[in-house]
């Protein structure tokens, strides 16, 4: 039997507030922070990854569900990331 998980409305609202705040920070940084291009790109990608992780862990319940689902989700993600990296940054 797969793991059962609690569904607390308060937890979901907290995740939503976190996602909304991170989105606001992203937009503010991208439109007016005045950071150099490379640090800004790295920070924005990191923020997007954190937000995506929050959705997967809490809204999609990967945190509490069986680890097989995490594996099923992460494996193609890693494979795709490697492929994208390989395509965008080909070996000289």
């Amino acid at each position: 039997m797969h793991a059962t998980h609690e569904s607390h409305p308060g937890k979901y609202i907290a995740v939503f507030v976190g996602l909304a705040l991170l989105t606001a920070i992203e937009v503010l940084m991208a439109t007016g922070a005045g950071l150099a291009a490379t640090p800004l790109i790295l920070i924005l990608i990191a923020l997007a990854a954190v937000k995506a992780g929050m959705v997967a862990l809490f809204f999609m319940h990967l945190r509490d569900d069986t680890k097989w689902f995490s594996l099923l989700f992460i494996y193609p993600l890693l494979l795709a990331s490697l492929l994208i990296f390989w395509v965008v940054f080909p070996a000289p």
């Binding site: 992203e26 991208a30 924005l44 923020l47 997007a48 995506a52 959705v55």
Partner: peptide, 18 residues
């Protein structure tokens, strides 16, 4: 639905912000 939201989070950053 959450997966579609997750994909948008990535697309929003990649397309509009970067």
């Amino acid at each position: 639905w959450h997966f579609v939201d997750l994909v948008w989070i990535i697309l929003f950053t990649i397309i509009y912000l970067l």
